[in-house]
Design a protein around this nucleic acid. Sequence first.
DNA 1: AATGAATGAGCGTTCATTCAT
DNA 2: GATGAATGAACGCTCATTCAT
Lengths: 214, 214, 214, 214
Amino acid sequence: MSPRPDVSIERTEQILQAAMTVFAQRGFHESRMDDIAEHAGVSKGTLYLYFKSKDEIISAMLEAFFAHEFENMQTILNSGESAASTLLNIADTVVTDMNEMSDFLSIGFEFYAVAGRKESVREFLRGYYHEYRTLLVSLIQRGIDSGEFRSINPDDIAIAIIALFEGMNLLWVVDPESLKPDRMVRAGVSALVDGIRIVPLSAAETGSRSVSNL
Amino acid sequence: MSPRPDVSIERTEQILQAAMTVFAQRGFHESRMDDIAEHAGVSKGTLYLYFKSKDEIISAMLEAFFAHEFENMQTILNSGESAASTLLNIADTVVTDMNEMSDFLSIGFEFYAVAGRKESVREFLRGYYHEYRTLLVSLIQRGIDSGEFRSINPDDIAIAIIALFEGMNLLWVVDPESLKPDRMVRAGVSALVDGIRIVPLSAAETGSRSVSNL
Amino acid sequence: MSPRPDVSIERTEQILQAAMTVFAQRGFHESRMDDIAEHAGVSKGTLYLYFKSKDEIISAMLEAFFAHEFENMQTILNSGESAASTLLNIADTVVTDMNEMSDFLSIGFEFYAVAGRKESVREFLRGYYHEYRTLLVSLIQRGIDSGEFRSINPDDIAIAIIALFEGMNLLWVVDPESLKPDRMVRAGVSALVDGIRIVPLSAAETGSRSVSNL
Amino acid sequence: MSPRPDVSIERTEQILQAAMTVFAQRGFHESRMDDIAEHAGVSKGTLYLYFKSKDEIISAMLEAFFAHEFENMQTILNSGESAASTLLNIADTVVTDMNEMSDFLSIGFEFYAVAGRKESVREFLRGYYHEYRTLLVSLIQRGIDSGEFRSINPDDIAIAIIALFEGMNLLWVVDPESLKPDRMVRAGVSALVDGIRIVPLSAAETGSRSVSNL
DNA sequence: AATGAATGAGCGTTCATTCAT
DNA sequence: GATGAATGAACGCTCATTCAT
């Protein structure tokens, strides 16, 4: 009588979760549909009930992979702190996310590699970074307007900050043992923020000194 | 009597060159040994005379791919200019290299992805970045010693600079049309350098003003 | 108390009807159980309530497909007309049936192909053609006995007539646009009938002249 | 030095031969590429060196399957015998071919089934039958011109003859044990030829009497 | 040294069938 | 009876690798 409960959302999540784990361990191409199915605890056929193909799983993962970032962003941006402080808070959040995602970071690079060859992926990532940049630009502009920052081009700085985040990501993947992302990211952003401040050395607020002096 | 001239070095280069082109167009896994052979102008069998396997071609490429960077570095480091100027010169060289390598940048990301899963690749890249960092650290230290820079942690800043370079790389792959690497990289490094200078606003020397005022 | 009315016969017909449509469009192997279920307006599971397997649907269709033919036959045979006229009437009926079944004719060929490999199908079709032949033989014999036909072997002629019908079928499937079955079948049977008549040229009755003179 | 001899033609034939055997035993869809490879004495991969896909093997077979017929046709047509005799000679050849191909006849029906759904196959067969018909029409017209045949429509009779051939084919596939193609085909064509002759009963020449009286 | 025809393990995908609801 | 989500065996096709020439 009562229809079977619709499990399609759970199943989809379940499969994507499994795919992420397998992809992170083996890469897109070396990952077998069998592996994903086994990890998800379903049969291979079931994968195809929820995704048309392996490529579609990868595409869905692309979106899932780059979805988290903006969730806490708004809260941070509206915290009422100074622009410089907010930028450092964002840096801290990025580090937290990096730590949480540490097992899966290599998946990101696979996406970047694909982006070099596939316009659709490039387009998606372009949109992602555009949104990210827009948020940072408005924050930096706020800093300029409030007299906190020099009148630099906010776009250039926003891009530099994102580049810094992504580059740290990369370096951490390469050397996860000896690099300490929390420290490094903060130091980098601190230096950048100091570089655009009117009064560059208010170390107390930015915390940059505590880092530089470690 | 007269032995045939040994063409093995040329052949090897020839094959690696072809592999790089094909890999950049299709990625490691989508590249066929046939494609590489055709591009190299040799037969498929010949590939196996010079490389034991496809994986070995990829490994050899890893080294070839990350080899160029340090060639001009020494010249720049010994130019006698201020540390800040030298850092900006390095940024310019990086941009030049990015432009030259633009068709192949996505290969790099494939390597980073592999690095996430394969210690040998991770190790190689670790060595590469270590060397890079060492050069930058000594330069930054020179700046500190000469009173040009504040007494920050040179390692943190070196890492931040490398992260900035690599991150810019990534962003440029994603959005090659609208991003201008020369401008972006300079702006980022300028801000960083300004952030660590004792006298931050000597815009004339760093060129940061030309950027900020655009 | 009041048992649900037994819908199994209707369901079975409904499914066979749907199967015939789908099979005609796609062939046995390209037809999916899903397609049949959808066409029948039932679920895939329901198919298995009425048929053990796809093969059983095909088998059931074999019988349904070759069932129609003999229904009107008796009426035609007992019409009281001459044997030659009756043969031409049969030809006309065959053409009518061909027209009605035009969308499904290719299914027949699939059965013939299966007959080449499966004794059970061969046996069924053998029975079908035997019955058909028996009816024609008795008609031809009547013609011989009544002095209408020469003393040919009625079996040979019966087989030739059936072959003519089936062959026309085939040619029409291959070239439905330019071939006109009504005309062709009549012309063929007319010639055959003329060939076995004692007085071959009574064109008025056979209608052969109208064809020959077109 | 001397290049390896080109075996591509032999290989192609070898594969088609094997495919024909396997297809005849199992049908197109039930035939496995593995089976064909094994029958041909090559590996599965080798099949794909010579044919792009299973479908392409089937297409190539379509042409090979319907290619033989016209080879002897010209010789028979130019034999200088009367039109009626020539038609009977053709019938005999058809029977000979049927006997030679007996193991493979079911493949033909599979093609006819496909023809019902695929224009490309339909087109090929249309061309085949058109050529066949053209030859027969010219022969029949010769008979009319020479006063051997009545002034019937040669096209209708040509089609009837082809239909007779194909229909006999079918009946023989269904009942190979009890039907005798040589006898049946001759009887059918004899009756047809008698039906269109000016002097219908010259049994000696057509051999129809010997058949009817067996 | 160089070739390229041949190989066959391996994988993505399909779809008839089952069975819990 | 009816459903349709789940299954997994099976197959077409690919492509890195080998080796006889």
